[in-house]
Design a protein around this nucleic acid. Structure first.
Lengths: 300, 300
DNA sequence: GCGAGTTACGATAAACGTAAGGATG
DNA sequence: CATCCTTACGTTTATCGTAACTCGC
């Protein structure tokens, strides 16, 4: 294919204006340049596209046919290019975020809402998956990025810390410990504890904190989902150790959270994405929005 | 549209081979040239099309989309170009020939048959029109070319003489004058004459010949169509003056034609086409076939 | 350190514009 | 004779290939 788009554009311009001079002015080249461009195109196709006398320029039969097909081709190409540019301009696109249950029902929906306001053309899909599956979803490119808690140097992913959250003690608002701004691990040792399941990352962090404070925790109940644990606390069955941002799921339960200190157990909320893959423009913008959104909500 | 087809071809080659080096070998350029071509295309589109490490080259999301649309565009363009080249190669096309009734039923069908054998892909349409309409059909571009008898310098048409035919006397095979190889105008003066209508070109030529021979013809019958005149002769109602090639329409009638001499009245069979319009490849080939065909059939 | 993509730069080739030529109405 | 397309030619621009560099495995 030795044909250039420039040649086709020149051809269509001449066909439209029925004049080399007018077409040359229109596309901003000297008229002799147009002549040679058309001549080369005709040579390439092997057919004469225009019947031209000094007074009239008219399409030949072959020219008519080629005009119809090539103009459609150029139109399609224009659309293809526009689509690509729309992606770049975030006017269009599709992103897929993987997040664990708690984040999927707290921070992420609000971040997505903010993102949608700014980039209404982009489709956002949220893949709410168990925390241990997030990494795999990102690695397999099933999701463009993932949220959760991840260790620093995992294989094949790049990690960015979005915010640092601390473990807090969740209890009914009228609980005695709610009076103080902080709670020490020792303070909760004797309270009935609603813990997360042993496979949970939160559970492990809790045990880490308790161990540092030389406490042994004896959970009275175990829950797989944070919402379950919150409901137990709301029902007055005990207290729970959860990340502070879980508070946003406890609005109707009249709960409070007080940061656990000595030690403060922090938990990084991270964003991960497959290393080696470039961020699509939409994902890159989503990360910015997410980061801004999260920064405005850093708990205590 | 500052995008070149070359760029798209390069892009598709890289996408296919998932390698710059392999793609560069495939399209026959140095690999650094490919790099810059892709880079320019990406800049133009505003998106990164490939995620490339030194070990892997993979399409981005935007690249996948652009690959789908642009490959289709290139395919369509290929078809458009192929169509144009098919026209040039006479593999395809459509031509429309205008011819008067007698030619439409004698020479032309055989010429078209010969043409079709050589160029089976081309559609040939025959517009059989009254002789006086042929020129108009050609001028209005309703027909690509026309056949008939035309004077040398008519406005807007170019004329090519295909063959020179002579007027002859048509009579039953057993007619006394059929014994001689020629007939003189005086010989037929007293015979019952079936003449063409006064508007006919043949009629005018006949009167021209008679006048030169100082004869006054008194037609006994007049016919608008040559076939009618031939039928009258076949029925023994008289003789007629017609171009020799009309003999091919008189097979079953047992007629003979003897050239009229002193003077010999000649009639040029011409091909006309609109001046200023280029011949389409198919028409140009048809003219060649027609000329060859006619040359093999020049009557006495 | 080898293989693969990128950057730098000089050489080559294509495209363009100016000026002159030719044909048409 | 005025207009418009074509041809010719010198200049500019862009493209390409070689070589040196960089990165990842």
């Amino acid at each position: 294919m030795r044909i250039a788009i420039k040649q086709i554009e020149a051809f269509l311009a001449v066909a439209e204006h029925k004049s080399f001079s007018a077409a040359a002015r229109h596309i901003g080249v000297a008229q002799p340049a147009l002549s040679t461009t058309i001549r080369d195109l005709e040579t390439e196709l092997g057919v004469r596209l225009f019947d031209r006398t000094t007074r009239r320029v008219e399409l030949t039969q072959a020219g008519e046919e080629f005009r119809a097909s090539s103009s459609k081709v150029l139109e399609d190409l224009g659309h293809a290019v526009q689509n690509a540019r729309d992606l770049a301009a975030r006017r269009r696109g599709r992103i897929r975020i993987a997040a664990p249950p708690l984040l999927s029902s707290t921070i992420v929906p609000w971040a997505i809402a903010a993102f949608q306001r700014e980039y209404p053309g982009i489709t956002v899909e949220l893949l709410d998956a168990p925390a241990q599956d997030i990494r795999e979803e990102v690695l397999s490119s099933n999701a463009d990025c993932g949220l959760g808690t991840f260790s620093a140097h995992e294989e094949g992913i790049e990690r960015t810390v979005l915010m640092r959250d601390n473990l807090a003690l969740f209890m009914p608002a009228d609980h005695p410990l709610a009076a103080a701004p902080y709670v020490r691990w020792e303070d909760m040792a004797t309270l009935p504890l609603i813990a997360m399941a042993r496979s949970s990352g939160i559970r492990r962090l809790m045990e880490l904190g308790a161990e540092s404070a030389a406490q042994v925790l004896r959970p009275k109940f175990e829950a797989s989902l944070v919402t379950t644990a919150l409901a137990f606390v709301g029902a007055g069955l005990g207290v729970s150790v959860l990340p502070t941002y879980a508070l946003s799921r406890a609005d109707q339960l009249d709960l409070v959270a007080r940061p656990l200190v000595d030690p403060t157990v922090s938990r990084d909320l991270c964003l991960i994405r497959a290393s080696g893959k470039s961020l699509s423009p939409a994902v890159s913008s989503f990360i910015t929005v997410l980061r801004n959104h999260v920064q405005g909500r850093i708990p205590s």
